[in-house]
Design a protein around this nucleic acid. Structure first.
Lengths: 207, 207
DNA sequence: TAGATTGTTAATCGATTAACAATC
DNA sequence: TAGATTGTTAATCGATTAACAATC
Protein backbone atom coordinates (compact mmCIF):
# COMPACT_ATOMS: atom_id res chain seq x y z
CA UNK A 1 0.00 0.00 0.00
CA UNK A 2 1.02 3.59 -0.47
CA UNK A 3 2.59 4.57 2.78
CA UNK A 4 1.42 8.15 2.51
CA UNK A 5 -2.13 6.87 2.65
CA UNK A 6 -1.77 5.85 6.27
CA UNK A 7 -4.30 7.69 8.40
CA UNK A 8 -2.97 10.65 10.35
CA UNK A 9 -4.12 9.00 13.56
CA UNK A 10 -1.98 5.97 12.81
CA UNK A 11 1.10 8.10 12.20
CA UNK A 12 0.54 9.93 15.46
CA UNK A 13 0.18 6.68 17.34
CA UNK A 14 3.28 5.23 15.68
CA UNK A 15 5.24 8.19 16.96
CA UNK A 16 3.92 7.50 20.44
CA UNK A 17 4.49 3.76 20.28
CA UNK A 18 8.08 4.38 19.40
CA UNK A 19 8.67 6.91 22.11
CA UNK A 20 7.04 4.68 24.66
CA UNK A 21 9.10 1.70 23.57
CA UNK A 22 12.41 3.52 23.45
CA UNK A 23 11.79 5.39 26.70
CA UNK A 24 10.34 2.83 29.04
CA UNK A 25 10.45 -0.63 27.66
CA UNK A 26 13.59 -1.17 25.68
CA UNK A 27 15.87 -1.51 28.65
CA UNK A 28 14.22 -4.18 30.67
CA UNK A 29 12.34 -6.48 28.34
CA UNK A 30 12.36 -7.86 24.86
CA UNK A 31 8.73 -8.31 23.92
CA UNK A 32 5.46 -6.57 24.49
CA UNK A 33 1.81 -7.54 23.97
CA UNK A 34 -0.67 -5.34 22.20
CA UNK A 35 -2.67 -4.94 25.40
CA UNK A 36 0.39 -3.73 27.30
CA UNK A 37 1.27 -1.15 24.70
CA UNK A 38 -2.38 -0.14 24.59
CA UNK A 39 -2.57 0.29 28.34
CA UNK A 40 0.47 2.55 28.36
CA UNK A 41 -1.02 4.87 25.78
CA UNK A 42 -4.65 4.49 26.83
CA UNK A 43 -5.74 2.86 23.61
CA UNK A 44 -7.41 -0.47 22.91
CA UNK A 45 -5.36 -3.56 21.98
CA UNK A 46 -7.42 -3.88 18.81
CA UNK A 47 -6.30 -0.46 17.66
CA UNK A 48 -2.68 -1.27 18.32
CA UNK A 49 -2.98 -4.48 16.31
CA UNK A 50 -4.72 -2.68 13.52
CA UNK A 51 -1.89 -0.15 13.32
CA UNK A 52 0.60 -3.01 13.22
CA UNK A 53 -1.35 -4.50 10.35
CA UNK A 54 -1.37 -1.22 8.47
CA UNK A 55 2.41 -0.96 8.59
CA UNK A 56 2.78 -4.66 7.85
CA UNK A 57 4.35 -5.64 11.11
CA UNK A 58 3.77 -9.04 12.67
CA UNK A 59 4.13 -10.35 16.17
CA UNK A 60 3.96 -13.83 17.56
CA UNK A 61 0.97 -15.44 19.17
CA UNK A 62 3.10 -16.44 22.08
CA UNK A 63 5.26 -13.43 22.84
CA UNK A 64 3.54 -10.49 21.18
CA UNK A 65 5.84 -8.03 19.43
CA UNK A 66 9.60 -7.91 19.61
CA UNK A 67 10.38 -4.42 20.84
CA UNK A 68 13.58 -3.90 18.92
CA UNK A 69 12.05 -5.08 15.65
CA UNK A 70 8.98 -2.97 16.19
CA UNK A 71 10.99 0.18 16.87
CA UNK A 72 12.99 -0.55 13.76
CA UNK A 73 9.85 -1.03 11.68
CA UNK A 74 8.19 2.13 12.96
CA UNK A 75 11.33 4.09 12.20
CA UNK A 76 11.40 2.73 8.67
CA UNK A 77 7.88 3.97 8.19
CA UNK A 78 7.89 7.37 9.82
CA UNK A 79 11.46 8.39 9.18
CA UNK A 80 11.34 7.07 5.68
CA UNK A 81 13.63 9.73 4.33
CA UNK A 82 16.19 9.62 7.15
CA UNK A 83 17.20 12.76 8.98
CA UNK A 84 15.04 15.81 8.40
CA UNK A 85 16.27 19.35 8.88
CA UNK A 86 14.02 21.77 10.69
CA UNK A 87 14.05 25.53 11.13
CA UNK A 88 12.32 27.33 13.97
CA UNK A 89 10.93 30.78 13.19
CA UNK A 90 10.74 33.02 16.23
CA UNK A 91 12.95 32.58 19.26
CA UNK A 92 10.50 33.63 21.95
CA UNK A 93 9.58 31.32 24.79
CA UNK A 94 7.78 28.88 22.56
CA UNK A 95 10.55 28.77 19.99
CA UNK A 96 13.11 28.16 22.71
CA UNK A 97 10.99 25.43 24.22
CA UNK A 98 10.78 23.64 20.89
CA UNK A 99 14.48 23.86 20.11
CA UNK A 100 15.32 22.48 23.54
CA UNK A 101 12.70 19.79 23.28
CA UNK A 102 13.94 18.54 19.93
CA UNK A 103 17.47 18.35 21.23
CA UNK A 104 16.47 16.43 24.33
CA UNK A 105 14.42 13.77 22.65
CA UNK A 106 15.49 10.90 20.51
CA UNK A 107 14.22 11.87 17.11
CA UNK A 108 15.40 12.25 13.57
CA UNK A 109 14.42 15.88 13.44
CA UNK A 110 17.40 18.24 13.60
CA UNK A 111 16.98 21.90 14.30
CA UNK A 112 19.46 23.38 11.87
CA UNK A 113 18.49 27.04 11.97
CA UNK A 114 16.57 29.59 13.97
CA UNK A 115 15.16 32.81 12.54
CA UNK A 116 14.17 35.96 14.37
CA UNK A 117 14.12 39.72 13.84
CA UNK A 118 15.55 40.77 17.20
CA UNK A 119 19.16 41.97 16.67
CA UNK A 120 20.05 40.79 20.16
CA UNK A 121 19.24 37.22 19.22
CA UNK A 122 20.66 37.13 15.72
CA UNK A 123 24.13 35.69 15.22
CA UNK A 124 24.24 34.31 18.74
CA UNK A 125 23.79 30.53 18.78
CA UNK A 126 20.99 29.23 20.97
CA UNK A 127 21.78 25.76 22.32
CA UNK A 128 24.40 25.54 19.58
CA UNK A 129 21.93 26.37 16.81
CA UNK A 130 22.68 29.45 14.72
CA UNK A 131 20.13 32.24 14.69
CA UNK A 132 19.64 34.27 11.52
CA UNK A 133 17.68 37.31 10.48
CA UNK A 134 14.43 36.41 8.84
CA UNK A 135 15.37 38.30 5.69
CA UNK A 136 17.98 35.63 4.98
CA UNK A 137 15.52 32.77 5.05
CA UNK A 138 15.66 31.88 1.38
CA UNK A 139 19.41 31.55 1.33
CA UNK A 140 19.68 29.63 4.58
CA UNK A 141 16.84 27.25 3.79
CA UNK A 142 18.56 26.28 0.56
CA UNK A 143 22.05 26.11 2.02
CA UNK A 144 21.01 23.97 4.95
CA UNK A 145 18.45 21.89 3.09
CA UNK A 146 15.68 22.76 5.54
CA UNK A 147 12.54 20.70 4.96
CA UNK A 148 10.28 21.63 7.86
CA UNK A 149 9.47 25.07 9.25
CA UNK A 150 8.03 25.61 12.70
CA UNK A 151 6.29 28.96 13.10
CA UNK A 152 6.21 30.52 16.54
CA UNK A 153 6.11 34.11 15.36
CA UNK A 154 3.54 36.68 16.43
CA UNK A 155 0.46 36.27 14.28
CA UNK A 156 0.61 39.58 12.45
CA UNK A 157 2.99 38.75 9.69
CA UNK A 158 2.73 34.98 9.90
CA UNK A 159 0.87 34.57 6.63
CA UNK A 160 3.27 36.50 4.40
CA UNK A 161 6.16 34.81 6.09
CA UNK A 162 4.67 31.38 5.53
CA UNK A 163 4.26 32.04 1.82
CA UNK A 164 7.88 33.08 1.55
CA UNK A 165 8.97 30.02 3.47
CA UNK A 166 6.90 27.76 1.27
CA UNK A 167 8.38 29.40 -1.80
CA UNK A 168 11.88 28.79 -0.47
CA UNK A 169 11.28 25.06 -0.82
CA UNK A 170 10.12 23.87 2.57
CA UNK A 171 7.69 20.95 2.27
CA UNK A 172 6.05 20.96 5.67
CA UNK A 173 4.97 23.74 8.00
CA UNK A 174 3.97 23.44 11.61
CA UNK A 175 2.03 26.56 12.49
CA UNK A 176 1.78 27.59 16.14
CA UNK A 177 0.62 31.13 15.36
CA UNK A 178 -3.05 31.92 15.88
CA UNK A 179 -3.47 32.78 12.20
CA UNK A 180 -4.82 30.02 9.94
CA UNK A 181 -2.65 29.68 6.85
CA UNK A 182 -3.50 29.07 3.24
CA UNK A 183 -0.54 27.54 1.49
CA UNK A 184 0.17 26.41 -2.06
CA UNK A 185 -0.43 22.77 -2.95
CA UNK A 186 2.30 20.38 -2.01
CA UNK A 187 3.20 21.90 1.33
CA UNK A 188 1.87 19.84 4.21
CA UNK A 189 0.41 22.05 6.89
CA UNK A 190 -0.32 21.26 10.50
CA UNK A 191 -1.79 23.91 12.75
CA UNK A 192 -2.05 23.98 16.49
CA UNK A 193 -3.72 26.73 18.41
CA UNK A 194 -3.01 26.70 22.13
CA UNK A 195 -5.79 29.09 23.03
CA UNK A 196 -8.40 27.06 21.18
CA UNK A 197 -7.29 23.92 23.00
CA UNK A 198 -7.51 25.65 26.35
CA UNK A 199 -10.93 27.07 25.58
CA UNK A 200 -12.06 23.60 24.60
CA UNK A 201 -10.85 22.15 27.89
CA UNK A 202 -12.60 24.94 29.78
CA UNK A 203 -15.80 24.17 27.91
CA UNK A 204 -15.86 20.44 28.48
CA UNK A 205 -14.57 20.61 32.05
CA UNK A 206 -17.56 19.82 34.19
CA UNK A 207 -18.73 22.06 36.97
CA UNK B 1 -30.00 20.13 23.01
CA UNK B 2 -27.45 19.41 25.67
CA UNK B 3 -24.71 21.87 25.04
CA UNK B 4 -22.02 19.49 26.23
CA UNK B 5 -22.94 17.21 23.36
CA UNK B 6 -21.57 19.63 20.81
CA UNK B 7 -18.80 17.97 18.79
CA UNK B 8 -15.28 18.87 19.81
CA UNK B 9 -14.64 20.12 16.30
CA UNK B 10 -17.49 22.57 16.60
CA UNK B 11 -16.17 23.93 19.89
CA UNK B 12 -12.74 24.39 18.38
CA UNK B 13 -14.17 26.22 15.41
CA UNK B 14 -16.33 28.41 17.63
CA UNK B 15 -13.21 29.49 19.47
CA UNK B 16 -11.63 30.37 16.14
CA UNK B 17 -14.71 32.14 14.79
CA UNK B 18 -14.75 34.33 17.84
CA UNK B 19 -11.09 35.18 17.70
CA UNK B 20 -11.32 35.94 14.02
CA UNK B 21 -14.34 38.15 14.52
CA UNK B 22 -12.97 40.06 17.49
CA UNK B 23 -9.53 40.45 15.99
CA UNK B 24 -10.13 41.37 12.38
CA UNK B 25 -13.70 42.06 11.65
CA UNK B 26 -15.34 43.83 14.54
CA UNK B 27 -13.80 47.17 13.89
CA UNK B 28 -14.71 47.83 10.33
CA UNK B 29 -17.94 46.06 9.56
CA UNK B 30 -21.17 44.92 11.10
CA UNK B 31 -22.08 41.74 9.26
CA UNK B 32 -20.33 38.78 7.77
CA UNK B 33 -21.42 35.99 5.38
CA UNK B 34 -20.75 32.33 6.05
CA UNK B 35 -18.49 32.17 3.02
CA UNK B 36 -16.38 35.05 4.27
CA UNK B 37 -15.90 33.54 7.69
CA UNK B 38 -15.17 30.22 6.02
CA UNK B 39 -12.55 31.74 3.75
CA UNK B 40 -10.75 33.32 6.70
CA UNK B 41 -10.46 30.02 8.51
CA UNK B 42 -10.14 27.79 5.45
CA UNK B 43 -13.39 25.98 6.03
CA UNK B 44 -16.45 25.55 3.84
CA UNK B 45 -19.46 27.86 4.18
CA UNK B 46 -21.65 24.80 4.78
CA UNK B 47 -19.64 23.88 7.82
CA UNK B 48 -19.88 27.38 9.22
CA UNK B 49 -23.65 27.35 8.76
CA UNK B 50 -23.93 23.95 10.35
CA UNK B 51 -22.04 25.16 13.39
CA UNK B 52 -24.37 28.15 13.60
CA UNK B 53 -27.30 25.77 13.49
CA UNK B 54 -25.83 23.63 16.26
CA UNK B 55 -25.55 26.58 18.61
CA UNK B 56 -28.96 27.88 17.52
CA UNK B 57 -27.74 31.09 15.94
CA UNK B 58 -29.49 32.63 12.96
CA UNK B 59 -28.39 35.08 10.35
CA UNK B 60 -30.31 36.93 7.69
CA UNK B 61 -30.59 35.93 4.07
CA UNK B 62 -29.63 39.39 3.06
CA UNK B 63 -26.78 40.35 5.35
CA UNK B 64 -25.48 37.10 6.76
CA UNK B 65 -24.57 37.17 10.46
CA UNK B 66 -24.37 40.20 12.70
CA UNK B 67 -20.86 40.11 14.08
CA UNK B 68 -21.62 41.54 17.49
CA UNK B 69 -24.53 39.19 18.06
CA UNK B 70 -22.53 36.22 16.86
CA UNK B 71 -19.61 36.98 19.17
CA UNK B 72 -22.08 37.33 22.01
CA UNK B 73 -23.73 34.03 21.16
CA UNK B 74 -20.46 32.15 20.87
CA UNK B 75 -19.35 33.55 24.20
CA UNK B 76 -22.58 32.41 25.82
CA UNK B 77 -21.89 28.92 24.56
CA UNK B 78 -18.20 28.46 25.18
CA UNK B 79 -17.76 30.60 28.26
CA UNK B 80 -20.96 29.32 29.74
CA UNK B 81 -19.64 29.49 33.27
CA UNK B 82 -18.04 32.92 33.00
CA UNK B 83 -14.45 33.43 33.97
CA UNK B 84 -12.37 30.31 34.50
CA UNK B 85 -9.29 30.20 36.67
CA UNK B 86 -6.27 28.40 35.32
CA UNK B 87 -3.02 27.22 36.88
CA UNK B 88 0.14 26.55 34.92
CA UNK B 89 2.41 23.79 36.24
CA UNK B 90 6.02 24.28 35.29
CA UNK B 91 7.53 27.68 34.52
CA UNK B 92 10.00 26.65 31.86
CA UNK B 93 9.91 28.15 28.40
CA UNK B 94 6.61 26.55 27.50
CA UNK B 95 4.96 27.54 30.77
CA UNK B 96 6.13 31.11 30.32
CA UNK B 97 4.89 31.17 26.75
CA UNK B 98 1.44 30.05 27.84
CA UNK B 99 1.14 32.54 30.70
CA UNK B 100 2.12 35.36 28.39
CA UNK B 101 -0.16 34.15 25.64
CA UNK B 102 -3.20 33.98 27.91
CA UNK B 103 -2.56 37.48 29.16
CA UNK B 104 -2.21 38.91 25.68
CA UNK B 105 -5.32 37.46 24.18
CA UNK B 106 -8.90 38.34 24.77
CA UNK B 107 -10.21 35.31 26.61
CA UNK B 108 -12.06 34.41 29.75
CA UNK B 109 -9.26 32.22 30.99
CA UNK B 110 -7.30 33.78 33.85
CA UNK B 111 -3.96 32.42 34.93
CA UNK B 112 -4.29 32.68 38.69
CA UNK B 113 -1.32 30.61 39.80
CA UNK B 114 1.93 29.10 38.60
CA UNK B 115 3.61 26.09 40.21
CA UNK B 116 7.22 25.02 39.99
CA UNK B 117 9.88 23.34 42.10
CA UNK B 118 12.75 25.69 41.38
CA UNK B 119 13.36 27.86 44.49
CA UNK B 120 14.55 30.69 42.28
CA UNK B 121 11.17 30.93 40.64
CA UNK B 122 8.95 30.39 43.66
CA UNK B 123 7.50 33.43 45.38
CA UNK B 124 8.54 35.73 42.57
CA UNK B 125 5.59 36.80 40.44
CA UNK B 126 5.89 36.13 36.72
CA UNK B 127 3.96 38.69 34.67
CA UNK B 128 2.11 39.52 37.90
CA UNK B 129 1.09 35.92 38.53
CA UNK B 130 2.26 34.35 41.80
CA UNK B 131 4.45 31.28 41.61
CA UNK B 132 4.13 28.61 44.28
CA UNK B 133 5.91 25.44 45.21
CA UNK B 134 4.19 22.39 43.83
CA UNK B 135 3.78 20.92 47.30
CA UNK B 136 1.22 23.63 48.05
CA UNK B 137 -0.99 22.78 45.10
CA UNK B 138 -3.93 21.43 47.07
CA UNK B 139 -4.24 24.50 49.23
CA UNK B 140 -3.77 27.01 46.42
CA UNK B 141 -6.15 25.26 44.02
CA UNK B 142 -8.88 25.41 46.64
CA UNK B 143 -8.14 28.95 47.77
CA UNK B 144 -8.05 30.33 44.26
CA UNK B 145 -10.82 28.17 42.84
CA UNK B 146 -8.63 26.83 40.05
CA UNK B 147 -10.61 24.85 37.48
CA UNK B 148 -8.10 24.10 34.76
CA UNK B 149 -4.52 22.85 35.05
CA UNK B 150 -1.98 23.18 32.27
CA UNK B 151 0.92 20.76 32.59
CA UNK B 152 4.26 21.78 31.12
CA UNK B 153 6.38 19.80 33.56
CA UNK B 154 9.07 17.33 32.55
CA UNK B 155 7.44 14.00 31.82
CA UNK B 156 8.96 12.01 34.65
CA UNK B 157 6.61 12.86 37.46
CA UNK B 158 3.75 14.14 35.34
CA UNK B 159 1.43 11.26 36.06
CA UNK B 160 1.59 11.35 39.86
CA UNK B 161 1.29 15.09 39.75
CA UNK B 162 -1.77 14.91 37.52
CA UNK B 163 -3.51 12.55 39.91
CA UNK B 164 -2.86 14.90 42.80
CA UNK B 165 -4.11 17.83 40.78
CA UNK B 166 -7.26 15.97 39.81
CA UNK B 167 -7.83 15.05 43.43
CA UNK B 168 -7.50 18.69 44.42
CA UNK B 169 -10.65 19.44 42.49
CA UNK B 170 -9.55 20.59 39.07
CA UNK B 171 -12.04 19.60 36.37
CA UNK B 172 -9.95 19.93 33.23
CA UNK B 173 -6.33 19.18 32.45
CA UNK B 174 -4.35 20.25 29.42
CA UNK B 175 -1.35 17.97 29.20
CA UNK B 176 1.70 19.15 27.26
CA UNK B 177 4.03 16.57 28.75
CA UNK B 178 4.98 13.61 26.57
CA UNK B 179 3.41 11.18 29.05
CA UNK B 180 -0.15 10.05 28.31
CA UNK B 181 -2.31 10.39 31.41
CA UNK B 182 -5.00 8.17 32.85
CA UNK B 183 -7.28 10.24 35.02
CA UNK B 184 -10.33 9.50 37.14
CA UNK B 185 -13.77 9.95 35.58
CA UNK B 186 -15.09 13.46 35.49
CA UNK B 187 -11.85 15.23 34.66
CA UNK B 188 -11.72 16.32 31.06
CA UNK B 189 -8.34 15.65 29.55
CA UNK B 190 -6.76 17.11 26.45
CA UNK B 191 -3.29 16.05 25.44
CA UNK B 192 -0.95 17.62 22.95
CA UNK B 193 2.40 16.22 22.05
CA UNK B 194 4.63 18.59 20.14
CA UNK B 195 7.08 15.95 19.03
CA UNK B 196 4.35 13.74 17.62
CA UNK B 197 2.98 16.66 15.64
CA UNK B 198 6.39 17.45 14.24
CA UNK B 199 7.04 13.85 13.32
CA UNK B 200 3.70 13.77 11.58
CA UNK B 201 4.55 16.85 9.54
CA UNK B 202 7.91 15.33 8.63
CA UNK B 203 6.16 12.17 7.49
CA UNK B 204 3.55 13.80 5.29
CA UNK B 205 5.85 16.47 3.92
CA UNK B 206 6.52 15.43 0.36
CA UNK B 207 9.97 15.00 -1.03
C1' DT C 1 -6.41 -29.55 24.78
C1' DA C 2 -7.50 -24.96 26.84
C1' DG C 3 -6.20 -20.35 27.08
C1' DA C 4 -4.23 -16.40 25.30
C1' DT C 5 -2.94 -13.75 21.62
C1' DT C 6 -2.58 -12.09 16.79
C1' DG C 7 -4.48 -10.72 12.22
C1' DT C 8 -8.25 -9.28 9.50
C1' DT C 9 -12.89 -8.59 7.99
C1' DA C 10 -17.32 -6.58 8.95
C1' DA C 11 -20.21 -3.31 11.60
C1' DT C 12 -20.64 0.95 13.85
C1' DC C 13 -20.30 5.57 14.67
C1' DG C 14 -19.86 10.36 14.09
C1' DA C 15 -18.25 14.12 11.62
C1' DT C 16 -18.10 16.27 7.26
C1' DT C 17 -20.02 17.17 2.85
C1' DA C 18 -23.59 17.52 -0.49
C1' DA C 19 -28.08 18.71 -1.80
C1' DC C 20 -31.81 21.56 -1.82
C1' DA C 21 -35.94 24.02 -0.03
C1' DA C 22 -36.95 28.44 2.04
C1' DT C 23 -36.22 33.21 2.26
C1' DC C 24 -34.89 37.82 1.30
C1' DT D 1 -38.34 37.97 -10.83
C1' DA D 2 -33.43 36.42 -10.52
C1' DG D 3 -29.64 35.87 -7.63
C1' DA D 4 -27.63 35.11 -3.39
C1' DT D 5 -27.77 33.37 0.98
C1' DT D 6 -29.39 30.71 5.04
C1' DG D 7 -31.08 26.51 7.44
C1' DT D 8 -31.61 21.68 7.53
C1' DT D 9 -31.98 17.00 6.01
C1' DA D 10 -29.80 13.19 3.68
C1' DA D 11 -25.59 10.98 1.81
C1' DT D 12 -20.85 10.14 2.18
C1' DC D 13 -16.68 9.10 4.11
C1' DG D 14 -13.23 7.42 7.07
C1' DA D 15 -11.75 6.11 11.40
C1' DT D 16 -12.70 3.31 15.26
C1' DT D 17 -14.68 -0.69 17.33
C1' DA D 18 -16.42 -5.27 17.44
C1' DA D 19 -16.27 -9.89 16.10
C1' DC D 20 -14.04 -13.91 15.22
C1' DA D 21 -11.02 -17.23 12.77
C1' DA D 22 -6.26 -18.68 12.96
C1' DT D 23 -2.33 -19.77 15.56
C1' DC D 24 0.77 -20.87 19.20
Amino acid sequence: MDIKKLPEGTIERLSKYRRCLTTYCKFYRENIFSHELARNLHLTPEQVRRDMMLIGHSGSHKNGYNIEELVEKISEVIDCRGKTNVAVFGLGNLGQAIVRYLQDKETRLNVEAIFDVNPEKINKPFLSVDCYHIKDLKRIIKEKDIRIAVLTLPGDDAHDMALEIAEAGVTGIMNFTPVPLKLPEGVFLEEYDILTSLEKVAFFAKK
